[in-house]
Every structure is written in structure tokens, then in C-alpha cells.
Write a protein that binds this DNA or RNA. Structure first.
Lengths: 333, 333
DNA sequence: CCACCTTACTGACACGCGCAAGTGACGCGC
DNA sequence: GCGCGTCACTTGCGCGTGTCAGTAAGGTGG
């Protein structure tokens, strides 16, 4: 404990001094370096010194020396993260931990360049949702970051892109509504411009599925998160002869439900509604919300595999099957 | 680009060689070190070399040398993170960024010791929700981590503890129900054991507020996230003469709403319900959910101030006022 | 008695960076 | 001619590790 408030770091040199051995010996003991016979007596002396001083090796120094950090950085998108993302992160963290990697998520601070973020961390890999421009990617590589996984690359230019086929979500919604007799669908498009990266492919999935199934072209309505806006949208759909609505996600679907209630439109009688995500509130809606859920566990494991394979230079794992997306059938559709 | 797949890191030495100057000069140019006059010609040579090679300084080496990393680690609790936590993280990240700090959140991997996490990162500060045992805290200090902020310390032993008085949330719920004429309240306690750290103080707030306001002792029911469980709870409350229910959070409140609907109990006529968090689904419930919201922005700024003050050794900022918690009045109570 | 091997260590370097201190060239005053 | 000051840099150290290449002590074989 030095004079100022900051007690000096305990280093392996301190431990060595305390145990009466060299720093190298300390390192050998702590890392259990193979082919180095350390007698038990010495080993214990070192271990006790570690305990007494409360020594913890500096991750920074270790990373510098080994040139490889076990850190995986996940750049969160700037749209509001819900329970689905939360669960994905948790499972991803666990999956990566099994491979000795540690996941850190960075909620993007407004107006801060991305480069500053990964620079201050020096991760082994970066997982991100939005696409990055090529200069940024090149900069990362130059900084020694081995992997970049873009999860939502519309172009598919980079490796490992477009993990969860968002189109498929729209397709599943559409297929369910078609199977229950609906011929003319509506799409409840989100008001938040930040999520267009997800909304567009989902809507696209609905459009192409409608075409494939010979349904009418879907009637798209942007639905702001107010009851009034939802009422407006519901009325428009009613006027257009729409009997089933695919919502961008469960929050929007719940808004539509509220709009229908306020407009005197019965669900699913007059209008069937189907959401995405299966949020906790979905089963308690009135009527309970039918929705499309993704298997976050499987997705997380795939991402983890993607990262570790690329780090070790092995071939990429197969894409997850279409069964990661499934319908949760309740009363609203 | 070397033979194997891993292109060697571009270092400042490479830049120096390319620009025909010393490494130090490169450092001076890039850090704009004061009191070091570098003529523009040289400066441009260096900058061009940086550009050409795509050089990015190693965060690791920089942190090692300066002894101070600008990383703040936030250990997320293991309970499911919802939109509220998401927003808090985002604002916190922005607030810290304004002070030159970078926030990383770690979703706790199941069964992984906490120590491994902060060790692999070497942060300047750690923000956490759960309380940590004292040995762990001591270990962090020994590792050179200056600050530890426990947000939910029931004991209040550490500095900066108990940021958002959870009791206060329960109190606000109770006061509103009391003000609207309810004398005997119920409490909808969450089924998930992971959130007891939050649930207990909130319930405690309801209990003491009831006592202060001379209401009856609240009737606590654990409500699992199914309609059946909620129906059961609603019936019990009805039998006990309860006319208003404080729910642990909005998800539980929505379950109670669904239970009331299924049990033929009208809200708020027979039973008033009030939640916590103001999730996106709250305004679309039937009836729209009255709830207690926290000002995540203010909280985030307070945490950021707490961290920076402790890092610089300055006195702690004043606790946020009670106005960070406020009622969102809708139809359900 | 010496070569040789094992045991139990230690010395020294490298990782990439920031920065204190130094160095040579040049200009200026006297 | 010399001291002094500025300019434009460079040399060299240290941050805390992991690890390669020793090395002294002790034992064994011939």
C-alpha cells in the first residue's frame, strides 16, 4: 500500500520475492508448464505467497506477451435490446466460455466511432450485427483482430454473414396465416428507423412467401407505438380487406392487438395477428399472441462455433437448419 | 503478410521504418504530445505511413505501459435482461464515453467464476449488481482495479451501494394505491429465484409503506408465469379481500391482468394492478398498465459520475433524488 | 577422475507502447 | 571562439508476462 490511494499492483515479482524464488519459477508453478518438474515443497511456497499477497496475473501483460487475447467483443446494435437479445448474449457467453473465450458486449455510445471501441479492447474476434464498411474491417485486421462476423450482412460479402435468415421468419408467419385460410395479409412495419436492417428482410420474406403461395400482395402499414396509430392501421387493413397481419415483432403485434380492441375489431375473428420473438408478455395478451420464436441457444452455439473455427483456421461449421425458427401457436392467429 | 493465415500485427516500429523516423517520433505525432514541436513535413510523412500500413496502436500495450486502462466492466446479473437494463447500459455507455471511458458488459456465463472474467479484461473499474464477497473484492483491488460499485448491496457495506432504492419503488406503488382508496393490498412476487435480490427490497418497500399509511399487511402471492398460476393468485387475493396488487414488475403484472381476465375479475374495478418498468407492452395491455418507471438516464449518469469520481479520487457525487422514480398512470390502477 | 544426465532452478529477452532524458546540428550574441 | 538556446529528433528504460536457453548441484556409469 503506497502513500496515495492507489495501492501498487501485486506482480509476479512480488510473489517471487515473498517465496524466495525467481519470477520464472512462479510463472511455471502458476501455469503448470509441462516438462518442468517443480518439487511440491517449492510449489506450495509459491502458492502460499500468491494467497498471502492476493496476486492475480495482469491480463494486459499476458495478452501483450502471448499476442492472443481470449476476448470476443460483441458490438450491440443501437436499437433497443429486448429479452431475446439478452438471452442470446447469455448463451453465447456460455458457449464461448466453454472454449476458453470471454464475451464482452458493448452498447454503442451515440456518436462514438466504432474503431475507438475495439481499439481500447484489442479483442481476438468481433461479433456484430450491422454491417461495417470495408475500411473499418481492414483496420481491424491490421490491428490483429482475426475474425469479423457480420450477422446481418444484406450483401453477404463477408464470411459468416446473415446468420438467422430473417426472411425465413416472415415466411413462417405467412405460411401459418395461409394455412388458416387467410388470402390477403397486412404487414405491421416498425416505426423505429434503427431496425430497418431487420424489418426489411422480414417483410421481404412475407412478400416472397405471399407470391409463392399465390396470396395477394401484402398491405404494409407503419405502426407507431401508440394506440391511435394502431387503430389507424387496423382501419386501413379492414378497408383493404386484410384478414391477417404479420407484425415486425411482438411489441408491434401487441400494439396492433390494442388497436384492434379500440377499433372494435375482434381477434382472431376479424383479424388474425402474429408476432415475432415470444416475449414474456406474449402469452398474457388478449387474446394470447401467436408468434414466431427463434432458438437462441442453437443460434448462440452456431456463432460460438463460427468464431472458434475462424480463430483456429478450421473450416466453417454448417449453417443452422431451418428448425431454429418455429411457430408458437396461441389464440391470436 | 506472413506465410500463415495470421498477418503480423502492424506496430509503430513498422510505421517508423516506413516514414524513416524513430518510433518515438511516431508516438509523438500520434499522441500529439504537448511541448514537442514536430514540423509539418515530418508529421505528414508519419501520418501517411500510418494510413498506408493501416496502423492501429495496440490497446493492450498501451494499457500495460500506462498502467491505466479506460475500460469499465459491467457484470450483468444472471437474471433475464429486459429493455430497462438495455437502456440503462446504453446511456451508461454514452455517459462514460464522455469521460473517455469505454463500457463493456459481460453476461455471466453459467458456472464460471467471476474472477476469470475481470482477469481477462483488466478493467479500471467494475460495476455490478449483485453483491460480491469480500475476498473477491480484495482480489480485484490487488489486481489494480480501483473501483467496485455494488448497486444492490443489501448491507450497504461498500461504497456507492444501493443505487436505486428498490424500497422506494414499492413505496410509490403503495402510495398510489392508497391514494386511490385501497386499504388492503396484495403483492405479486416473482417465481424466479434469481431476482430475489430485487424482489425482497421492493416487497419490503410495500410492507413499510403499508405500515406507515396504516394499511393492512400486504398479502404476498408468488405468481409463476402462467395464466393458471395467475388465476390462482387472483382468487386468493379476492378471498382475502384484496383490492389492489403491486406486481414485482410489468411482466408479472401482465400475468396478473391475464389471470384476472380469466377469473372474471375486472380491472381496475374489482382489482387494481400496478407494475414496474414501463415495458413497451405496458400501454397496450387491457386495461393499459399503470406502472412505476425509473429514469434510466439519470441513473446511468449517476453511475458514470460514481465511477469517474472514484477513479480520480474525488468525493462521491450526491445520491440521485427520489425523483428518478415516478409513476406512469394508466387505466389499471 | 571425468563425461554425462537429471533435477531445480534462474537470467535474459520479447511483446508494443509512452515518455524522460539525451544528442547533434544550427543560429545568435558577445 | 565559445557559451547558450532552440529545434528535431533519437536512445533507452520500464510496464508485467511467458518462455528459451542456460547453469550449478548432485547423482551415475565407466
Amino acid at each position: 500500500m503506497s502513500v496515495d490511494g492507489h495501492p501498487r499492483r501485486v506482480t509476479s515479482a512480488d510473489v517471487a520475492r515473498e517465496a524466495g524464488v525467481s519470477r520464472t519459477t512462479v510463472s511455471y508453478v502458476l501455469n503448470e508448464t509441462p516438462h518442468q518438474k517443480i518439487p511440491d515443497a517449492t510449489r506450495q511456497r509459491v502458492l502460499h505467497a500468491v494467497e498471502r499477497l492476493g496476486y492475480a496475473p495482469s491480463a494486459t501483460a499476458r495478452a501483450l506477451q502471448s499476442g492472443r487475447s481470449d476476448v470476443v467483443l460483441c458490438l450491440l446494435p443501437d436499437w433497443p435490446i429486448g429479452p431475446a437479445m439478452g438471452q442470446l448474449l447469455e448463451t453465447l457467453s456460455t458457449s464461448l466460455a466453454a472454449e476458453g473465450l470471454t464475451l464482452y458486449a458493448h452498447p454503442r455510445a451515440a456518436g462514438r466511432p466504432v474503431s475507438e471501441v475495439w481499439r481500447s479492447l484489442g479483442p481476438a474476434a468481433v461479433v456484430l450485427w450491422d454491417e461495417l464498411d470495408d475500411r473499418e474491417v481492414a483496420a481491424m485486421r491490421a490491428a490483429g483482430i482475426a475474425v469479423t462476423v457480420a450477422l446481418l450482412s444484406p450483401t453477404g460479402a463477408h464470411k459468416g454473414e446473415l446468420l438467422v435468415p430473417q426472411q425465413r421468419i416472415g415466411r413462417v408467419q405467412t405460411e401459418h396465416l395461409a394455412a388458416t385460410g387467410h388470402r390477403r395479409l397486412g404487414y405491421a412495419y416498425p416505426d423505429d428507423p434503427r431496425v430497418t436492417g431487420f424489418a426489411e428482410p422480414r417483410l421481404d420474406g412475407v412478400r416472397t412467401a405471399c407470391a409463392d403461395l399465390r396470396l395477394d400482395v401484402p398491405v404494409v402499414q407503419t405502426v407507431a407505438m401508440t394506440v391511435e396509430a394502431a387503430v389507424e392501421a387496423v382501419r386501413s387493413w379492414a378497408d383493404a380487406g386484410v384478414t391477417g397481419v404479420c407484425a415486425y415483432n411482438d411489441d408491434v403485434a401487441l400494439a396492433v392487438l390494442a388497436g384492434a380492441r379500440a377499433a372494435g375489431v375482434t381477434v382472431p375473428g376479424d383479424l388474425a395477428v402474429i408476432g415475432v420473438d415470444d416475449i414474456p408478455a406474449a402469452p398474457f395478451a388478449s387474446p394470447p399472441l401467436t408468434t414466431v420464436d427463434s432458438d437462441q441457444g442453437a443460434i448462440a452455439q452456431y456463432i460460438a462455433a463460427l468464431v472458434t473455427r475462424q480463430l483456429s483456421g478450421k473450416p466453417l461449421p454448417p449453417r443452422p437448419g431451418s428448425d431454429v425458427i418455429h411457430l408458437v401457436r396461441r389464440a391470436s392467429a
